[in-house]
Amino acid sequence: MNARSLFVPLGIFLALVVTLAVGFRLDDPHKLPSELIDRPFPAFSLPSLADQAQTLTEASLTGEIALVNVWATWCAACVIEHPELMRIAREEGLPIYGINYNDDVDKARQWLVRYDNPYRTVIVDGEGRLAIDLGVYGAPETFVIDEKGVIQYRHVGVVSRDIFDTTLRPVIDVLRSRQAAIEPS
């Protein structure tokens, strides 16, 4: 047999691997949709969980570097990340805004009483409109926004101590140093 033809199967296989790798990358649900980075937070006008008469808008999230966390009572993984959110709110000096997504208002309030409340304010997104604008795949998801409300980072899935330290903290540190450079206090 021709020695070169023996390489044909290897060639076919490598072409297959490239196809699979490309197809796989396209489908990667954890990939940040590029259109969201450096865009201002989508406009919304929704009630607050604590006081439904009060209306919150995208302007309510500005002023400080903060996390925006999408959660729900039906989300089992939200219970898992809850202690880390409590720690961040307590120790990192970072406000967390909650978006209560496709949920029952009474259940959501009970949930926060039962597990404790890490959120500065909770936006009630009963129909999931805001979540659609944010391109949310499911709860939990966490966004990092800067003091102007511009989205800087998006994390899909549970925030653990490990993930906070390795992925969110570097983003926040960059934002903080930038902020410090602009307005030296």
Partner: peptide
């Protein structure tokens, strides 16, 4: 769906099958 798993299997498959086919070619 879990991309991490996909990446691992794809890498492992590339190593095993690619390696075997290279050995075969040689």
């Amino acid at each position: 769906v879990d991309p991490e798993r996909g990446v691992f299997i794809l890498g492992f498959m590339t190593l095993v099958v690619g390696g075997s086919l290279l050995l075969y070619a040689l």
